[in-house]
């Protein structure tokens, strides 16, 4: 009787301690018809950490990810306790494709964020900001919207200068974009992180205002599905 009592109280005392690592599986699916995602970063962190905040200006590290797909500065800017699992799809995540189911030990961390750039866009990205990881075992589905980092004009010109990281769209991985566009706009009205208004596009592969194809490189939210299994 006494032994049983002790055993039952033990897990409770562990649960109340701060450092209670969880084992979770994460899988990300690209729901879109014609947009690629750059390497997907999954970050487990505390409740005060954010890779981005809607309505606030992007950090330089987020800007680098959103404009060129490079997640290294976001990882470099992380606190030591943060568990970053980068590039879970081993490269680009193609339209309608799913990443492998990726096992993550959360360590001391309680919240999950996910980002990846959308191609072809100027600075569009998929975003999950600080989702609280449930403590109850089970399978949870989260649908992600597309955001605009607010750091680059959405001119929709494919431009590989500097890898496209500073000006223009670096690449259309489907190799179905055009060239010779004059540019959709030269202004970025909202310079904070906001819901992406979508590509404008046009149907000319050699001229027009946009290098992206309005029939192919468009999307409606949500753009990604995340399945988290808490074990």
């Amino acid at each position: 009787m006494k032994t049983k009592f002790l055993l039952s109280i033990l897990p409770l005392s562990l649960a109340s301690a701060m450092a209670f690592s969880q084992s979770i599986d994460v899988q990300v699916t690209n729901l879109t018809h014609g947009m690629h995602f750059t390497p997907v970063l999954v970050s487990a962190h505390d409740s005060n950490t954010h890779l981005f905040i809607s309505g606030q200006a992007a950090t330089a590290a987020l800007q680098t990810m959103a404009e060129g797909g490079n997640t290294a500065p976001l990882i470099a800017a992380s606190a030591a306790t943060v568990v970053n699992t980068d590039n879970i799809a081993a490269g680009l995540l193609a339209p309608s494709a799913s990443s492998p189911v990726t096992a993550i030990e959360t360590g001391v961390n309680t919240h999950l964020s996910i980002v990846a750039m959308m191609l072809p866009t100027n600075d569009g990205f998929i975003g999950l900001d600080g989702w609280k990881i449930p403590t109850a075992a089970g399978t949870y589905t989260i649908l992600l919207n597309s955001y605009d980092a607010g750091t680059e004009v959405n001119d929709e010109i494919v431009d590989t200068i500097n890898g496209g990281a500073e000006d223009g769209i670096p690449l259309a991985p489907g190799m179905d974009a055009g060239t010779g566009a004059s540019g959709v706009t030269d202004m970025e009205t909202n310079q904070t992180v906001h819901i992406h208004r979508g590509n404008t596009g046009d149907t000319s592969l050699t001229a027009g205002i946009s290098d992206v194809d309005s029939r192919i490189h468009r999307w409606l939210n949500p753009v990604a599905k995340v399945v988290v299994t808490v074990k």
């Binding site: 014609g34 192919i216 409606l220 949500p222």
Partner: peptide, 20 residues
């Protein structure tokens, strides 16, 4: 087309510059 099911991207239409 792509021969996989995905979320629909929406339609363009003549008023958004797709004249055909």
């Amino acid at each position: 087309d792509v021969d996989y099911v995905a979320r629909h991207p929406g339609v363009v239409g003549v008023d958004r510059g797709y004249s055909e």
